[in-house]
């Protein structure tokens, strides 16, 4: 059915589908969405027409196979605006941990016929292969952030960029600092805001899924983590986790003393 509503596609690359599920979890706003846009492709939700030209594409997942490269180029050609959503699409995701190892050796140790598997040498953010108009971090994304950005894009307005650390969200909500009251290491001070301090709200430290904050003093927080009892390897793994290949975290982990596995 042809309408003059803007067209939206949601594409999936190498990912766990968690960001798509976060969108589906939105509740009421999700029901209002079809009033504003034609959702022409969102396989997780039903519509399955990946090759249509659209106004906005939301892209989940990283680029990790030769076929992914061709497909993302096609998506780019078909989309006026391309928004990458989630840690996989914006930094390569958890699976980019393989970038720090020799993945062909790994595959040989796991699969009997590794030659049948065609993968790239690295798991890449979408922006490594095509131009991306907007990135929304998180594992998974905060769907309220995605919907807010969508609204702005539909109005032709640049979405508001988050600039604070998770700590500011933590404090605005009146949460009690896990690091100061329990000595529990928390990546909040060096992690970009956006999630609403989800982890500190449950009494545990942030594990940095949004990737680096605007200012990243990795030395100082690493020293603090060591004072709180983490050994060098454990400190390294705070950076080399979900957003391991986001530029700041990657550089931080490569500069750390515990870097012996890469």
């Amino acid at each position: 059915m042809a309408t003059d509503k803007p067209k939206l596609a949601v594409h999936k690359f190498s990912s766990c589908d968690g960001c798509q599920l976060a969108l589906l979890n939105l509740g009421e706003p999700l029901l209002a969405l079809p009033g504003l846009v034609d959702i022409v492709h969102f396989a997780e939700a039903g519509p399955n027409s990946p090759d249509q030209a659209v106004d906005i594409s939301l892209v989940e997942g990283s680029v990790s196979t030769p076929e992914d490269i061709q497909r993302i180029q096609q998506v780019r050609q078909n989309s006026k605006l391309l928004v990458s959503i989630g840690a996989c699409a914006t930094s390569g995701g958890l699976q980019a941990l393989g970038n720090f190892a020799n993945r062909h050796e790994w595959m040989a140790s796991v699969y009997s016929n590794p030659e049948n598997i065609e993968v790239l040498n690295s798991s890449d953010p979408i922006s490594k292969h095509v131009k991306v108009d907007l990135q929304i971090q998180g594992c998974p994304v905060n769907s309220t952030q995605v919907i807010g950005a969508l609204r702005n894009l539909l109005s032709g307005v640049a979405p508001r960029a988050e600039v604070h650390s998770v700590c500011m969200e933590c404090k605005r909500q009146g949460l009690i600092c896990t690091m100061v009251t329990q000595g529990e290491p928390c990546m909040g001070p060096v992690t970009l805001a956006g999630c609403g301090a989800l982890c500190p709200a449950t009494g545990r430290g942030c594990y940095g899924c949004y990737g680096p904050a605007e200012q990243l003093n990795d030395r100082s927080i690493s020293d603090r983590f060591e004072q709180l009892g983490l050994d060098a390897q454990a400190v390294l793994r705070r950076f080399r986790f979900i957003a391991n290949s986001a530029a700041g975290f990657k550089a931080a982990s490569e500069g750390l003393r515990g870097d012996t596995d890469g």
Binding site: H164, S165, C167, M168, K171, R172, C177, G188, P189, V190, A213, E214, Q215, N217, R219, S220, I221
Partner: peptide, 13 residues
């Protein structure tokens, strides 16, 4: 600056 994380906790409290 070598110690400060730029996190803003001091201003929030």
């Amino acid at each position: 600056a070598e110690r400060c994380l730029g996190c803003g906790n001091c201003t929030a409290v």
